[in-house]
Amino acid sequence: METDDWVCLENGEDDYVIERFEVRVKGKKPLVINKPNYSKLVFGSQQYLNIKLEPAKQFIRESVLETPEPLSFDEYWRMRQVLEQHLTK
């Protein structure tokens, strides 16, 4: 059986429990997802940011798993610019 490291099979003390996920972009209503699961995070981010699946997964990795603090708008915007450059290649 293949497992995905992003899927929480059992709630342990090392697992992330996300109560609220929020992304804000100037000129758009914020994306707010309460108690999201992985697929809601990826699909919501993908639709909101208008990006493909792999960049959406990377966005989730960087905004949730690889930082102890929420992203600021400036950090998000820099990440968005990098993703857009990557997608145009």
Rank of each mutant, 00 (worst) to 15 (best):
M1S: 15
E2T: 08
E2F: 05
E2G: 11
E2A: 09
E2S: 10
T3V: 12
T3M: 11
T3P: 00
T3I: 11
T3W: 06
D4T: 10
D4F: 07
D5E: 13
D5V: 03
W6M: 11
W6P: 00
W6G: 00
V7Q: 12
V7F: 10
C8H: 04
L9I: 03
L9M: 05
L9H: 13
L9Y: 13
L9P: 01
N11I: 01
G12C: 01
G12A: 08
G12K: 10
D14L: 12
D14A: 06
D14C: 01
D14Q: 13
D15Q: 09
D15K: 04
Y16E: 09
V17M: 05
E19R: 08
R20P: 00
F21M: 03
E22H: 05
E22L: 07
V23L: 08
R24T: 03
R24D: 14
R24N: 05
V25N: 02
V25Y: 01
V25F: 07
V25R: 06
K26S: 06
K28W: 01
K28N: 06
K28S: 02
K28D: 04
K29D: 07
P30G: 04
L31A: 00
L31V: 01
V32I: 11
V32T: 10
N34M: 08
K35E: 11
K35P: 01
K35I: 02
P36G: 03
Y38G: 01
S39F: 09
K40A: 07
K40C: 08
L41R: 01
L41P: 00
L41N: 00
V42L: 10
V42S: 01
V42H: 00
F43W: 01
G44Y: 03
S45Y: 00
S45T: 09
S45F: 00
S45P: 03
S45C: 03
S45K: 01
Q46E: 10
Q46N: 05
Q47E: 15
Q47H: 07
Q47A: 09
Y48M: 13
Y48E: 11
L49H: 12
N50I: 05
N50W: 06
N50H: 12
N50R: 15
I51S: 05
K52I: 06
K52R: 15
L53S: 12
L53G: 00
L53N: 11
K57Y: 08
Q58C: 07
F59A: 07
I60H: 05
I60L: 10
R61T: 07
V64C: 08
V64Y: 11
L65S: 11
L65V: 09
E66M: 08
E66Y: 12
E66F: 08
E66L: 06
P68E: 15
P68A: 14
E69T: 15
E69R: 15
P70H: 10
S72Q: 09
S72Y: 13
S72R: 10
S72M: 13
F73A: 14
F73N: 15
F73M: 08
F73P: 07
D74C: 05
Y76N: 04
Y76W: 13
Y76I: 11
W77H: 15
W77G: 13
W77F: 13
R78W: 04
R78E: 12
R78G: 06
R78N: 12
M79C: 07
M79L: 14
M79A: 05
R80M: 12
V82Q: 14
L83F: 04
L83A: 02
E84K: 02
H86F: 07
H86Q: 14
L87H: 13
T88F: 10
K89R: 06
K89C: 02
